[in-house]
Amino acid sequence: MTVLEIRNLSVFFSRYYNWFRKRTEACLNGLELSVGAGQLVAVIGSSGSGKSLLAHAVMGILPRNAGWSGQMLYKGELLTPQLQQRLRGRELALVPQSVSYLNPLMQVGKQVRMSGGGVRSRTELRSMFRRYGLESQVERMYPFQLSGGMMRRVLVSTATLGGAELIIADEPTSGLHAELAQETVMRFRELADEGSAVLLITHDLESVLPYADAIAVLYGGTSIEVAPAHYFSGDGTMLRHPYSRALWTALPRNEFTPPKGKPLVRPARSAAGCPYREYCESASEACRSGQIPVRRVNEGWVRCIDAT
């Protein structure tokens, strides 16, 4: 069952571009994505590709000067601001990027119990903390007293206490060393195995790869490829989009070589054409204009003209 389906999502901001005039800028552009129950989908993207915005758009917590267009369907139902408000913290859960999302003046246990509006019982919390290997004294600690690993586990438990059906985690592994990162991703895998749909947003392909069902590659504000995780293996020839392939070869455990040609990678920002066209070896005139159609290939899809 598809829990979340995102069709043609664009997110735009109105910002001052000089002292008096405002301009609307698109930060996400025609994004497509879907997650099913029991699935763990990793969204991979470079910094500034709009990963966090995706999470905030689904949760309905975009900043006040942002707007969005497109369709987001939660279990086939259109996600409206009212519906988001109702589901948020119950069926929809966000695991935020850092402790700065916690109230620094409130004991951790209390915050976790109160997350999502309803107050949960202490026994429920206790069993949840035990499951994540958090001792009972952690309940009475304040956020600044937690170590990096504990903090991450507390954040995960915040989102999972309510039995959420869709869990979105924003950069859950950043700044963690390999073992802890692995442990964190494993927690999300467990949640997916219990029937939740999990969307894991990260820039760190390596740590999520062993646990993800599918990988969605974000570039320049749009999803350019969704592929099953096992496509990311060997020399990456199973991947269809040249950017995904470049991402794979650039990993330290593979060739660790950046793509040839221009030294920097800054996506083309215009809505039309492929955002990777400036760096792609096989880019043609057709890559410059119009919306590049989504092409279904075997188990995933890709947004590239050359894909076979």
Binding site: N8, F12, F13, S14, K22, T24, R64, N65, A66, G67, W68, S69, G70, Q71, M72, L78, L79, T80, P81
Partner: peptide, 14 residues
């Protein structure tokens, strides 16, 4: 087909 959901705060849309 339902119409596209367009949510835009008044500060942004003028």
């Amino acid at each position: 087909m339902k119409p596209d959901n367009l949510a835009m705060p008044d500060t942004a849309s003028g």
